[in-house]
Amino acid sequence: MDYLLGALGVAIVVFASTDVDDLFVLLGFFADPKFRLRQIIIGQYLGIATLFGASVAASLLVLVIPAAYIGLLGLAPIYFGLKRLWEVWNGIDTGDNPEDHEKASAGHGNIVAVALVTIANGGDNISVYTPLFATRSAYEILAFGCVFAILTAVWLGVAHALVNHPKLGAPIKRHGYRVVPFILIAIGVLILYEAGTAGLFWN
């Protein structure tokens, strides 16, 4: 029992330390009127589940994916950031237009966007989770998954609460969607830089 509690503690520390920057990404999505709550929640869980599943598979195969190749995931937030920047620059973002909200709710594109950005932003997590899972039992890995699922809900709740805060919410909603493209582009560039992905192109 104490051993399992210790594993839960490790899971909390690992998730919090590797996903703290994800809070800022979620703030950006919640502040963007083109993204619905349901889309963000589903996309975030799909992204986290993909990272978790990839790490478990890698640990079973005793495989550590080279950081340079993981860094290629940084191209996803750069793409979405440039796309959103182009929309904002050309006045395509219509904010409170109900018709736009209906279109946003109907499509799956936003869910995919959130999932891909989550995966790209957490791509380096695989290099942390893989060796950790490789030394754990199946029960411990399952416990890690449960903790990650709960903390993902906490992350979503905190970001949603901040955006809807009586004082903080208004400025975040007013200016957040303009900041989102730059946040996404910066995250993508940082991922490429830290992973040393540029070396793949030079070589």
Results as ranks from 00 to 15, higher is better:
186 A>V: 11
58 A>I: 06
48 I>H: 06
94 T>Q: 13
193 Y>C: 07
124 D>L: 10
76 A>H: 00
190 L>N: 15
194 E>V: 11
12 I>P: 01
84 R>E: 13
61 L>Y: 12
199 G>Q: 15
9 G>L: 01
135 T>D: 14
33 P>C: 05
22 D>P: 07
189 V>Y: 08
119 I>W: 08
171 P>R: 00
54 A>G: 14
87 E>D: 13
87 E>G: 05
160 H>F: 13
62 V>A: 14
15 F>V: 10
70 I>D: 05
144 F>E: 03
108 H>S: 12
115 A>F: 04
153 A>N: 05
191 I>N: 09
16 A>T: 14
8 L>P: 00
155 W>F: 13
152 T>M: 01
143 A>S: 11
64 V>K: 10
169 G>F: 02
131 P>D: 08
6 G>M: 10
93 D>E: 15
101 H>A: 15
133 F>V: 13
9 G>P: 04
154 V>M: 05
132 L>D: 11
139 Y>A: 15
40 I>Y: 06
198 A>S: 10
23 L>A: 00
62 V>Q: 13
136 R>T: 00
5 L>S: 11
142 L>H: 02
145 G>E: 05
52 F>V: 11
154 V>S: 04
89 W>E: 11
115 A>S: 13
100 D>C: 03
84 R>F: 07
25 V>D: 01
34 K>L: 12
54 A>E: 01
102 E>M: 09
77 P>R: 07
196 G>A: 10
103 K>S: 02
119 I>Q: 03
66 P>I: 01
38 R>C: 02
188 G>L: 08
121 N>I: 00
182 F>G: 12
20 V>N: 11
110 N>W: 03
200 L>K: 01
189 V>P: 06
202 W>M: 00
14 V>T: 14
188 G>P: 10
92 I>H: 10
52 F>A: 09
10 V>G: 09
129 Y>L: 15
47 G>Y: 07
119 I>T: 06
31 A>S: 15
15 F>Y: 15
35 F>N: 02
187 I>C: 04
178 R>N: 13
81 G>L: 04
182 F>E: 09
104 A>N: 06
185 I>S: 09
65 I>Q: 10
170 A>P: 15
134 A>D: 08
78 I>Y: 11
147 V>S: 00
44 Q>A: 12
5 L>P: 05
77 P>L: 11
109 G>Q: 01
166 P>S: 06
76 A>I: 13
96 D>N: 12
51 L>K: 02
1 M>I: 10
18 T>S: 14
201 F>R: 07
147 V>T: 11
78 I>S: 10
159 A>C: 02
175 H>F: 14
98 P>Y: 00
38 R>W: 07
115 A>T: 04
95 G>Q: 04
80 F>S: 04
189 V>Q: 09
22 D>Q: 12
66 P>A: 06
200 L>I: 14
10 V>Q: 15
51 L>S: 03
134 A>T: 01
57 A>L: 15
64 V>I: 14
21 D>C: 06
6 G>N: 13
55 S>I: 07
12 I>R: 01
21 D>E: 10
31 A>F: 03
123 G>T: 12
25 V>T: 12
63 L>G: 09
55 S>T: 09
121 N>G: 07
139 Y>F: 13
176 G>R: 03
200 L>V: 06
14 V>L: 15
90 N>D: 09
187 I>D: 00
150 I>L: 15
139 Y>W: 14
197 T>I: 08
199 G>R: 14
136 R>M: 15
55 S>M: 10
163 V>Y: 03
144 F>W: 00
32 D>A: 11
75 L>Y: 03
53 G>C: 04
19 D>C: 03
